[in-house]
Every structure is written in structure tokens, then in C-alpha cells.
């Protein structure tokens, strides 16, 4: 009996966690992408560029800093896949979708803040990424990623 318990703990628990993480991670990702697409469609009329100049011939009556940030965490399944990739090398596809979501979410939040403040466009947009260190592996693991998108919001004279 105790052997079955020992086996279960040694093998069953990690596999169960992996399966659980796969399903929850996939569900979370899918619903996040749905939300992102809806909001991107809604905010697409607000110009957002990385250019540093005010679009001519706009007359700008107000300007301000707008920023959006998001913190996204890795799930156990993604981390496991990335660990395997760490042996073999190549594209870590499990992280690609994570970072894609994070970037788009940060930009969306920046646009939403800009539109709340009454701006009509955002220029000079920059993206910054920080890795949040995990407390578990002496700061070497990754608990998550924070992406910050910031730029200058411009209000145009109508």
C-alpha cells in the first residue's frame, strides 16, 4: 500500500500538475486573446506610433504621459516545456504566446488610459520589459514578466 502511495506522490503529482496547468493555461490564454481582439477592434481608431514628432498639421492643445502595464505569470506547463527547450535549444514557443499577449495587453491599457484622459493619439510609444524573479530558486527562476508601454498622449484642437 505504501509503495502505491510513494509511486503516486513521486510520479502522479507532477504529471497531474502538468495536466492541470495545461488545461487552465490554455483556457486562460484563449479567453485573454478573445478579450485582446475585442479591445483592439474598439481602440483601433486611436493612432499610436513610435514616431517622436507631433503629426503635422495637428494643433495640439494638451499632452501628457500615458502608460499601461501588465504582469503575466508562467504556468507550470509552459515552464516545463521551456525547461526541455533549455536542453535542446530553439524557439521557446510556449513563451512566445505569453509575451505576445503581454505586449498587446500593455499597449491596449495605454490606449485605454489615453482615451479616458481625452487624448486623441499617442506618440513616441516605448515598451519596457522586466522579469520578476522567483523567490523559490534563489532569484534565478522566473515568476513572471512585467511589460510597460508608455508614450505621449496628444489632444488635438477640434
Amino acid at each position: 500500500m505504501d509503495l502505491a502511495v510513494q509511486l503516486g506522490l513521486e510520479w502522479g503529482l507532477p504529471i497531474l500538475l502538468l495536466v492541470l496547468a495545461y488545461f487552465t493555461g490554455t483556457a486562460v490564454e484563449r479567453s485573454h486573446y478573445r478579450s485582446i481582439r475585442v479591445r483592439e477592434a474598439r481602440t483601433r481608431r486611436m493612432p499610436t506610433t513610435t514616431g517622436r514628432r507631433v503629426p503635422t498639421p495637428w494643433r495640439v492643445t494638451d499632452a501628457g504621459l500615458v502608460a499601461g502595464s501588465v504582469v503575466i505569470s508562467l504556468d507550470y506547463f509552459k515552464r516545463f516545456l521551456a525547461g526541455l527547450r533549455g536542453l535542446v535549444g530553439g524557439r521557446v514557443k510556449s513563451y512566445e504566446s505569453l509575451l505576445d499577449r503581454a505586449r498587446r495587453e500593455a499597449l491596449l491599457r495605454m490606449k485605454e488610459q489615453a482615451s479616458e484622459r481625452g487624448f486623441d493619439a499617442v506618440v513616441n510609444v516605448r515598451l519596457e520589459t522586466s522579469r520578476l524573479a522567483s523567490s523559490q530558486r534563489q532569484g534565478k527562476g522566473t515568476a513572471g514578466v512585467e511589460i510597460l508601454a508608455f508614450g505621449t498622449g496628444l489632444k488635438r484642437a477640434s
Binding site: 516545456l81 512566445e96 509575451l99
Partner: peptide, 15 residues
Amino acid sequence: PRLPPDEINVGPTHP
């Protein structure tokens, strides 16, 4: 205004 091509940054491989 144009929406970005979908999933251009994400590979098509199923995890």
C-alpha cells in the same frame, strides 16, 4: 486604422 495580422508573433505549433 488597421488591425494587426493575427498571431503573427506566435508559432502555429500546438504545445
